[in-house]
Design a protein around this nucleic acid. Structure first.
Lengths: 132, 132
DNA sequence: GACGAAAACAATAATCATTACTGTTTTGGA
DNA sequence: TCCAAAACAGTAATGATTATTGTTTTCGTC
């Protein structure tokens, strides 16, 4: 009896929107992009659904960059380059790290390591070209 | 003639407070801790001075954890374990990563890499013990 | 030791991203 | 088509952070 709906026109559009770009959008970016096409879309709906997708693992959040939460359509392991000039977030394919690093971190802290995140800081290709 | 002061009673207390702990405090934590000892301290002063210290490189921010910016008295290269249970942030000593990783990230993105951040996610020692 | 301009401050208001609430609309199985 | 649950728009509320304004502290100078 208990129905848990997984789809609605707007929810689908929001997911499609996130999946349409590799720019690691913010909630507001998604909203602005969909608004012309769905005039009665509400920013709250975007926030709510992004939180939902994130919760269920359909998308990921890569954290807060410059005060704004950034979402990622990719859920496979990989890293990011965060441009300190334009705040662009660029994907970097997963790279092998020494297997011992997590063991070492666990040993040092006495805790349990379930994952890790490697993030690069620098300039994206465009800003690098400009700064030259 | 132009004086740029680097010290004041409150500023010093704020820095001393951050340096007194390895808990990677938030602005509010610092405020709450100093308030009893300095009753006329203002939260805005804590924010302003933390931003100043961060700006000049006296302390670091390790980013936003659970919506709160966390500061770090350590400015030497090292990593952190972020407890997904209690949000505690625990230091992990810097570990050698393959020298090629930054080159590889630069190659993939076409950008310039100036630094990287490795963050562990899991349980701190206390939460690990509790969860058992 | 007092003086004064610049810096630092408290108190408060303003911002801004995000979340919660309320009443309405949409959805999809019966 | 009907209807209860879910989703939604619109709006208010929240909470961390930042800016503003008028007052106080600081510290080099006299």
């Amino acid at each position: 009896m208990e129905q848990v709906r997984k789809h609605s026109r707007k929810r689908d559009a929001i997911l499609r929107c996130v999946r349409s770009t590799d720019c690691h959008p913010t909630a507001d970016w998604v909203f602005s992009r969909l608004k012309p096409e769905i005039p009665d879309l509400s920013l709250g709906t975007v926030y709510r659904n992004l939180a939902m997708f994130k919760e269920e693992g359909t998308i990921l959040s890569l954290g807060v960059v410059n005060g704004l939460e950034r979402f990622d359509r990719r859920i496979d392991p990989h890293s990011h380059l965060i441009c300190q000039c334009c705040s662009r977030v660029v994907d970097v394919e997963a790279m092998d790290l020494p297997e011992t690093i997590c063991q070492e971190a666990a040993r040092q802290t006495g805790g349990a390591i379930t994952g890790w995140k490697l993030q690069f800081v620098g300039l994206c290709d465009k800003c690098k070209a400009t700064q030259k």
